[in-house]
Design a protein around this nucleic acid. Structure first.
Lengths: 338, 338
DNA sequence: CTGAAAGCGCTAACAT
DNA sequence: ATGTTAGCGCTTTCAG
């Protein structure tokens, strides 16, 4: 019935209750081995009786440590990122870290603000998917303060080498194009995303390599940039299908774009997977459900997240080795759309 | 280049550099109006020059305030929750709060552990979707410590009334059933989810009300519980279609289950939306993309999240009024599957 | 193995 | 409008 706010019990009080000093009580809460079994039990008992709650904030302040890590992603709406989040979260949880989450929605200002906030909160490390084209200044500043930063899924253009965990987007683009070529397609479009992102340029690079290697004509008008959203996909496919010589195969920047592309095709009475082949990227869980189910390039976001978390953990433990790059290989998943 | 870790500049040093006292410098960083323009500028200049970073952790410790809030959900995999997260996050960001995220994966132990961790981190408030059947003890404990808790999307069984933001699940169940009845269905199943959750019982309640009101037979074998996952949906529909008198309409616990149900139907050569009508719940963005597109009950998770955040903000500002219940009305979204 | 004292970086409550 | 003093709750020396 709305009991009044109690003030927190302090370690001091616990110590008094147990008849030991504050320092001893502190050792007990931290599970130090240099404490006799008796005292430990005495203190533990007092903790229970008084309802003591460890104040991690005060402890971190004093000990100059931090068990919080910041995670910065662009948007949670894209299942790719929500799975990444899951991967990071699970791995970090296991090590006893607490995660502070931030979303940039691809705004460089928001990204800087988030990093600043995380600095103020004394995070011990940061895992982030940088906003395309954003400046590495803030990130370098963090590193200067001794706060390790792991880039995940997206690279950053910088002199300084950063730790990075991602997939081989060039290979992914190549595999996608090769698959479409193998299916007999000669005019293949690349739709969605913007060229300011390293992900886009890498996927395009692999895509072009395969096109050229197959001796196909490279038609720049088959590259249509658009927001990496469903709506962006709808618009991109409509635009490219107005081409006098429309493509028979489409490689999409990601699965979300691909979902829009298939929607846009249907609206025009074109059957995806039959009239026009569609290949996505990421292999989000939903892609198996689309109609037709989507052929795509699996990017394993959860694994990416877990790897990034592991690497960060090592850095926070004091691993000072040179910047590492962890690149996972993507895999083709063939379904009905191609 | 690995420059060595610098130690943080303190307010003390800023004050000395600017030739003022620590207290004055403190007032400046907090934007107090009782500071002359000159001193403010002097201090601000020193801050820039020294690269000072405000230590929010120390400040919170001293001032007994907290600008972090905990957000506890079950799983980010379900788009319903990722949208909820977006809603909460945006609203809280605007007010300058920082969000600590936790996921329970529907484990009561994990939920208690998360709440304990959040207590240790001195969160100023918590927004959570409780694990079905979990005990309210921890939550009541938080409230005892003066930490407001807002329940969102799921209720908790407790003597104590809690603040709660959710949708009218009874109405949602009723609307869904009424729609199917209107379409001429006489045997309607309710698939997915478990009866230990308030959400399930509420949706079922509304569902049953409509069935009874229409004078239809209530067949308990048409209620199949299963995990609220795609796989759960597949299993549930397979089970119920083995019934000697299978249903012609299906109301699913949520859209994720519905996606599995439609998959399961297709596997058996049954065409969802034609042979069997399917209605989901939540209106996750993907539901428009399913094939056939899914008729569903919109639950507006982002609005739910935003409302919960607003309410929490008011509580943290000291609003001591009695527990509030905010119930949004769901809406029927008719698409091809029914 | 335990205790006493000092102090992390900041703000509150006075003074002036 | 600014300075002084005290202390948030904890950990870290350093003694013993």
């Amino acid at each position: 019935m709305g009991r009044k706010k109690q003030s927190r019990v302090t370690l001091q009080e616990v110590a008094k209750h147990a008849g030991v000093s504050r320092a001893t009580a502190s050792l007990v809460v931290r599970g130090s081995p240099n404490i006799s079994k008796e005292t430990r039990e005495k203190v533990l008992k007092s903790i229970k009786e008084l309802g003591y709650i460890y104040d991690r904030v005060a402890a971190n302040l004093r000990s100059h440590q931090s068990s919080t890590v910041g995670l910065i992603i662009t948007e949670i709406g894209n299942p790719f990122f929500s799975e990444l989040l899951v991967g990071v979260h699970e791995a970090l949880d296991k090590e006893g870290y607490t995660v502070i989450l931030g979303t940039t929605f691809d705004s460089p200002d928001k990204q800087d603000a988030l990093l600043a906030t995380m600095l103020e909160y004394r995070v011990g490390g940061v895992i982030m998917s940088p906003v395309p084209g954003s400046s590495p200044d803030m990130v370098e500043r963090l590193k200067q303060w001794g706060i390790p930063v792991i880039l995940v899924a997206r690279k950053m253009l910088s002199e300084e080498p950063f730790d990075y965990v991602g997939i081989d987007n060039v290979a992914g683009g190549r595999i996608a194009a090769e698959h479409l070529i193998e299916q007999g397609h000669r005019r293949i479009a690349f739709l969605g995303g913007f060229s300011n992102s390293s992900v886009w340029t890498d996927r395009k690079k692999g895509f072009c390599e395969a096109i050229e290697q197959a001796g196909l004509e490279m038609d720049e008008s088959l590259f249509v940039q658009s927001p990496a959203t469903r709506q962006g996909g709808i618009e991109a496919i409509k635009r490219v299908m107005q081409h006098p010589q429309p493509p028979t195969g489409v490689f999409c920047y990601n699965d979300v774009v691909a979902s829009g592309v298939m929607l846009g095709l249907k609206e025009q009475g074109i059957v995806p997977g039959k009239d026009v082949a569609v290949v996505g990227f990421d292999n989000i869980p939903e892609s198996a459900l689309f109609s037709p189910s989507l052929t795509t390039i699996a990017a394993f976001p959860d694994r990416l997240g877990a790897k990034a978390a592991d690497l960060l953990h090592r850095r926070m433990k004091g691993d000072e080795e040179e910047a590492k790059k962890l690149i996972l290989q993507p895999e083709l998943v063939v379904r009905e759309s191609s």
